[in-house]
Nucleic acid binder design. Sequence first.
RNA 1: GCGCUCGUAGCUCAACGGAUAGAGCAUUUGACUACGGAUCAAAAGGUUGGGGGUUCGAAUCCCUCCGAGCGCGCCA
Length: 545
Amino acid sequence: MVAALQNAVDAGDLSVPVPSTVTVERPKNRDHGDYATNVALQLAKAAGKPPRAVAELLAGRLVAITGIKQVDIAGPGFLNITLDAAAQGELARAIVLAGDEYGRGSALTGQNINLEFVSANPTGPIHIGGVRWAAVGDALARTLRAAGAQVGTEYYFNDAGAQIDRFARSLLAAAKGEEIPEDGYVGGYIENIAAQVVAKSPDVLSLPESEAREVFRVEGIALMFAEIKQSLAEFGVHFDVYFNEKELHDKGELDAAVARLREQGHIFEQDGAVWLRTTDFGDDKDRVVKKGDGAWTYFAADCAYYLDKRSRGFDRVVIMLGADHHGYIGRIKAMVACFGDDPEYNVEILIGQLVNLVKDGEPVRMSKRAGTVVTLEDMIELIGVDAARYSLARASVDSSINLDVNLLTKRANDNPVFYVQYAHARMCSVKRNAAELGIDKGTADVFNPGLLVHEKEAELLGVLGEFPRVVASAADLREVHRVARYLEDVATAYHKFYDDCRILPSERYPIPAELTRARLWLAEATQTVVANGLALLGVSAPERM
RNA sequence: GCGCUCGUAGCUCAACGGAUAGAGCAUUUGACUACGGAUCAAAAGGUUGGGGGUUCGAAUCCCUCCGAGCGCGCCA
């Protein structure tokens, strides 16, 4: 497309700057060809010609390209391109031969991205908000890698401070059979962990209060973290690094970070505290990094942590946070700018809206401190890993989602994940049946792409061809739900094809052997795309269901 | 009060500024010895919260009002 445009300019037909990329998309309406572009509309003004005149110039050059059957001009000046069948059918061969590699690309090659998500402190099980990030963050990591980026995933936590103290006191109270403190944590897991600590150290309750609390703190954190990691593993989520805030303090990185900020001229002292002048870069107010009593703030650790990531070679730091943390965007961007980095490039903060659980039409209140929390383990038990991951990954994180407990538990079949997985299982089934009949798709050189001329075959091929672009844009926009939505389109196109185009011959439906082979290639190409796409989401592609 | 995010079919959610706003579920009607019907075909369902503006073209960008959620500590 760009080449055709360049030719037109070179030949003097058009005088416009040639854009580096031209948007070509698959039109929603099949009457608009296999591919369409609005380039003529966009260049019309610069060219000083009516859009349709620009379109005519380009159309003439496009039809000359091999594989393009027809070019139409529609509406205000859209170019609708139709490919010939053999050119489209070739795609099936290319996909099958590429296998696992199909869809992978180099859009983000050269970028070294640090992706931080979940980052829940070990004071309780991962609750549903964290589950959303586990599903989306892990899928995003896979998708970024597929687009060529180098990615390090990271879970940040701290195991000191007031939150953890409350946790330890709650455990102690539970072990003693006393009432949980007013501001403590309640829930079955507290009882459970307290009992485990007592079982491990039977004499803990006879220790002085402060010593006992320390035992519960240390042992409790260890048990809680083991539980968290266990559920994440069951969920198929792996982190390259679990980063403890303590490490920053131990290595003196907070001092180093503040010294660096001071060099940059953004540190000042006031009212006995040390501040970072984040208002220089658009934050609402300046931020304290060291309190009047000499203690560091959490924000100071954030600064040090950012610098630590950068020093480990990551040029893009992506942090995924819940909607209740959106207030941090301003100060983090400003902090990055204070370091002299580019807040538009070096840091990126993704905000995920809430996940609401609805049961019997009533919202289920979620809180780590309530006994009725829905945790990662609950989700796995109730609806399974695949359905949970898929239903969380298929929605944009920009929109809050309502998951109906009754629907997910009783009506699991309604979930689109089954629709996609079923398509995959169906293809596997056809392959099994083919094998029983002694039929094979044959080698690549006997595949005849020109036979795939049915409307549903053309549609399916067109959708399959989109996959690499879907992966690239999902990675670039950090929107993995595009992958899920795309897979639903693939499944639909496959089911329609399956319905209209019989693959295997039977007594009632004789099919020429060559056509059977061609369709087996197409089915296998589809299976490859579905399997590769589900893998990006961390969802299984079952051979039977 | 200030700020952030959002408002799309009855419900749950889509739609790089593009053509007639799309899927699934629910509802209605067909395909039923079927390469697994967990599917397909069709119908119905919308003034994209309201109102202005920007342009060839707006659910999308800008302004304003209404409504929802969440933030505005020398807490973590």
